[in-house]
Simulated assay, not measured.
Amino acid sequence: MIAFCTISSVFSQDLKVNAFVDKNEIKIGEPIDFTLEITAKNNIEIDFPEFKKVIGKFDVVEPAKVISQENQDDVITTVKYRLTRFELGEEKIPPINVDFRIPSDTTVNSIQSSAIAINVVSVLNSEQDRKIADIESPVEYPFDWVQLGIWILFGLVLIGVVYWIWKKFFANKPKKEKEIEEIKDTRSPWQKAMESLQKMKRDELAQKGDFKVFYTELTDVFRNYLGGITTVGTLEMTSSELLELTEKLKVQMQISQKLHQFLMFSDLVKFAKEIPTLTQAETHYEEMTEIINSIEQFLVERERARKEIEQSNSQTKEKSF
Rank of each mutant, 00 (worst) to 15 (best):
F222L: 09
N224Y: 09
V251S: 05
T230E: 08
N224V: 01
T230G: 09
T234A: 13
G233K: 13
I229K: 08
Q254W: 03
Y225S: 04
L249A: 08
I255Q: 06
E244Y: 12
T238P: 00
S239V: 02
N224P: 01
Y225E: 00
T246Q: 06
T231Q: 13
E236Q: 13
Y225P: 03
L243P: 04
K248D: 10
L242C: 07
T231D: 14
M237Y: 09
V232F: 06
K250T: 01
S240W: 01
T238Q: 11
E236H: 11
L243A: 11
M253G: 03
L226T: 06
F222T: 01
L235R: 10
E244H: 11
L243Q: 10
E244M: 09
T230S: 13
L242S: 08
V221L: 03
L242G: 02
I255H: 04
L243G: 07
I229P: 09
Q252L: 08
Y225Q: 04
T234I: 10
Q254V: 11
L249V: 06
T246S: 15
L243R: 04
G228Y: 04
R223Q: 11
L249T: 00
G228V: 03
R223I: 01
T234F: 12
E247T: 07
T234Y: 12
F222S: 03
I229S: 09
V221E: 06
T231S: 15
E241D: 14
V251Q: 03
Q254G: 02
E236C: 00
E241H: 07
E244P: 00
M253V: 07
N224T: 09
V251L: 09
L243E: 05
L249E: 03
I255Y: 01
T246C: 07
Y225V: 02
F222D: 02
K250A: 13
L235F: 08
M237Q: 12
I255G: 00
L245S: 02
M253P: 01
E244S: 15
L242A: 07
K248I: 00
T231P: 00
F222M: 07
L243I: 14
M237F: 11
I229Y: 09
G227S: 13
V232M: 11
M253C: 00
Q252P: 00
T246L: 13
I229R: 07
E241G: 10
T238R: 10
E247F: 00
V232R: 15
E241P: 03
L243N: 05
I229E: 04
T238L: 13
K250S: 12
Q254I: 08
L235M: 12
L245C: 01
S239C: 07
M253F: 10
G228D: 03
T234D: 11
V232D: 05
E236Y: 12
E247C: 02
Q252E: 15
L242M: 14
G227L: 05
T230L: 08
T238H: 09
T234E: 11
T231Y: 10
T246R: 04
V232W: 02
F222R: 00
E244Q: 14
T246W: 01
Q254E: 15
T238N: 10
K248L: 09
S239P: 04
G228H: 06
T231V: 06
Y225M: 05
G228I: 01
